[in-house]
Amino acid sequence: CHSECLGNCSQPDDPTKCVACRNFYLDGRCVETCPPPYYHFQDWRCVNFSFCQDLHHKCKNSRRQGCHQYVIHNNKCIPECPSGYTMNSSNLLCTPCLGPCPKVCHLLEGEKTIDSVTSAQELRGCTVINGSLIINIRGGNNLAAELEANLGLIEEISGYLKIRRSYALVSLSFFRKLRLIRGETLEIGNYSFYALDNQNLRQLWDWSKHNLTITQGKLFFHYNPKLCLSEIHKMEEVSGTKGRQERNDIALKTNGDQASCENELLKFSYIRTSFDKILLRWEPYWPPDFRDLLGFMLFYKEAPYQNVTEFDGQDACGSNSWTVVDIDPPLRSNDPKSQNHPGWLMRGLKPWTQYAIFVKTLVTFSDERRTYGAKSDIIYVQTDATNPSVPLDPISVSNSSSQIILKWKPPSDPNGNITHYLVFWERQAEDSELFELDYCLKGLKLPSRTWSPPFESEDSQKHNQSEYEDSAGECCSCPKTDSQILKELEESSFRKTFEDYLHNVVFVPRKT
């Protein structure tokens, strides 16, 4: 048989008469490798580009789960590009990614509803959504962080984005990388972005840091009482949809009607710091009717980097990364020049730590249904340095008659930039024990000054392991946590139920 035959053949030295091919099969003959313009397919066939392209389009058009959109890589027609490569849609070739590779997620039936953290986790790592997304989240724990972890990498949506009755959302900033909504599939009414009845939605994105392009379709905003109209108009300008909307697409009466839409800028007039305090004062603000001013709200939190936005980490279910302080308005003076500047002394802060701070007014709604208010920009203030805590785990070892090696770990709280350490030492008198000992005694162990690591005695271990207080009263049991108490109650309830079950099964009433 021919060298490319495997198993047997019907005619000697003829690659077209093989029972099976050793390498690849091409047009009725066995070959060692697939010549151009053919590609290896499933490690035994040679196919042309049209064959591989037909497989790709067949799966793409069917949208069946589990099928493969075949691509070409290293002269092979394979189910998908290997790690580190992405497909070129024009020629199906796998090309190296520039940075992290995109991950295209194809949605069944063309859309997916995100109504819980669990459903959001199914899209973790996706960068391109081939379909439409509907966000409908009523509640949950730590929602802002969970949504950002699972949806934060999405850069492109081919269909539309719909935010509907998501009472738990305060902001859409968890879509931190969303840059493009194509609108290839539109919501009824030709809408590519749809926001309806979101009672706590206050911000779409921080438009000073976020760009969003909507290729096709219109915007729809109705019944978002805490979303200011200025935020919607800003989205029109940034996304390129200005002029597409009709009169009733953006409701003037049901958007922002319960919001404090600040239209003035508060400026800080005085800032002073110490290692654990920050004193702030800002310019006074009074609405047209000074009785509408209820006070100020001061927001602050630790910020290692200057990239904080107002609604980071917030949701309507209680999660809030900001510390909020309510401040009463100052006494009002008739003389504008003698107006008191409101302020606040922030206490209990960490030394040498940068804080993000902003302040906003708290006002009631005027009778004319106009909203007044003022808010400052987010500023960054760093507390002063102070003395560091003591170095940890000092170790001293003498390696000769004239040297001592000293080692330690950095302090747990540096409280500033540590530039150097101060080492103090003092000579001590020799131990009298060394002169009084009889060095001729056998088995004498000389006193040693070398360091030995501390260890816990058996008594201390027994005390720590004991669940009861000892007789001397030195140790006591740790208080039980809520989960331990709940577990004990469940076990007790189970024992009672099981005992009742045994009584009912074992003891049967005697027939009379």
Rank of each mutant, 00 (worst) to 15 (best):
A120C: 13
E264F: 10
T113K: 12
F358C: 01
E156P: 00
S239E: 02
L123W: 12
I163C: 09
D249W: 11
T113I: 06
Y160E: 03
P410S: 15
R138T: 05
V381Q: 14
R291P: 05
A374L: 06
L219M: 12
A144I: 03
T323W: 09
W207H: 08
D315I: 06
L108N: 15
L153I: 12
L212Y: 02
I154E: 00
F175Y: 02
L293Y: 04
N248V: 09
T273P: 04
D393G: 01
V381I: 14
W207K: 03
R281V: 00
H106P: 07
A149N: 13
E187W: 15
W352M: 10
N263L: 04
N130C: 01
E122G: 11
P394F: 01
R176N: 07
K350P: 02
Y194S: 08
L172M: 13
V324F: 06
L143P: 05
P288A: 07
G140F: 06
L294N: 10
W352R: 02
R347M: 05
E146L: 02
S230K: 14
L161H: 00
I137S: 01
L108P: 14
E146T: 05
N334H: 15
E368V: 15
K234E: 13
Q403G: 15
I232T: 15
Q216T: 11
S274T: 12
G159S: 06
D335P: 04
A120T: 12
R332Q: 04
S173P: 02
L349R: 02
F365L: 04
G373C: 03
E122W: 14
N136T: 04
E237N: 14
L294E: 07
K177E: 15
D257W: 06
I405M: 01
W344L: 09
K209G: 09
A259E: 05
G256R: 06
P410L: 11
D115S: 07
Q245A: 12
F220D: 10
R281H: 02
I379G: 04
Q354P: 10
K409E: 15
E368R: 15
F296L: 04
P336M: 02
P351N: 03
W408S: 00
D312I: 13
H233G: 02
L362T: 05
A168Y: 10
A385R: 09
N150A: 09
L204F: 11
L172H: 00
K103P: 08
N307S: 08
D367P: 07
F220N: 03
S321V: 10
P288I: 10
K242V: 12
Y194E: 13
I181S: 00
W344K: 13
L331S: 11
L227S: 01
L298V: 08
S132D: 06
I129K: 00
K409L: 06
N200L: 09
G318L: 12
G373F: 02
T383H: 00
A195V: 08
D206E: 13
Y191S: 10
S319R: 08
T113E: 12
L178M: 13
S402W: 06
E302Y: 04
L294T: 10
R370G: 15
F174P: 06
C228F: 08
I327Q: 02
I278Q: 00
E262R: 10
R244E: 05
P391R: 02
I188G: 11
A168R: 15
V359T: 03
D377V: 09
S398T: 15
F365P: 14
M346E: 03
D249H: 03
R347K: 13
P329E: 04
Y300K: 02
S158Q: 09
T215V: 07
K103W: 04
E231C: 14
L294G: 12
E236A: 11
V324G: 04
Q216V: 08
L153Q: 06
I157E: 00
H106V: 09
I157A: 01
R281F: 00
L362Q: 04
Y372Q: 08
L186P: 12
P288M: 06
V381F: 02
K301Q: 05
S192R: 01
P288T: 10
N190V: 10
E122D: 07
K267F: 11
S402M: 08
I188N: 02
A356I: 09
P342K: 04
S321G: 03
V324A: 06
I154S: 01
E262W: 07
F268G: 00
R124S: 12
H341M: 07
I214G: 01
L172E: 00
G131M: 01
F193I: 12
S173F: 05
T353G: 01
L349I: 07
K242L: 14
A259Q: 12
G217K: 04
G295F: 15
P304H: 04
G343H: 13
N263V: 08
R244Y: 08
I214K: 00
V238Y: 09
R291H: 03
W282H: 01
N334E: 01
V104N: 02
Y372K: 12
L107Q: 06
T215N: 14
Q354V: 09
D289F: 04
W207V: 10
R202I: 01
G343A: 09
R247Y: 08
N200M: 05
L161V: 08
I114F: 02
T241K: 13
I134W: 08
I271A: 02
H210K: 13
W207N: 06
G159R: 04
T127Q: 10
E146G: 15
G110Q: 13
N334G: 11
G183H: 03
L227D: 00
S173M: 10
D292N: 12
A149L: 07
G139Q: 15
D312K: 14
D393H: 06
T353K: 09
T127W: 15
L201R: 00
A251Y: 12
R244T: 08
D335E: 15
L252Y: 04
L212R: 00
N142S: 13
A251N: 15
Q339S: 08
T386W: 07
Q314L: 14
I214L: 08
S401V: 13
E236S: 11
F193W: 04
R291N: 13
I278T: 03
A385F: 04
E231R: 08
A316I: 01
N399L: 08
P330T: 04
E231H: 12
A316S: 11
T185R: 12
T323N: 13
P411A: 04
R291V: 10
C228S: 01
E264A: 03
S116N: 13
F193H: 01
Q306S: 14
N136R: 07
K209N: 06
K267R: 12
L212V: 12
Q203D: 07
S338N: 07
R332T: 11
D292K: 02
I163Q: 00
S166I: 09
E109S: 14
N387S: 05
Y167A: 15
D367F: 04
S208R: 07
K234G: 11
K226G: 10
S119W: 02
R176K: 14
D315V: 07
A149E: 08
W322Q: 04
D326F: 01
P342H: 12
L349Y: 00
F221P: 00
L219V: 06
E237W: 15
I154N: 01
D206L: 06
V359Y: 03
L147T: 03
I134P: 00
Q306K: 09
V128E: 01
L204D: 00
G295Y: 02
S338W: 03
Q121L: 13
Y191M: 05
Y300D: 00
T323V: 14
Q339C: 08
G140P: 11
P330E: 09
D315W: 02
S338H: 05
F299G: 06
K177F: 07
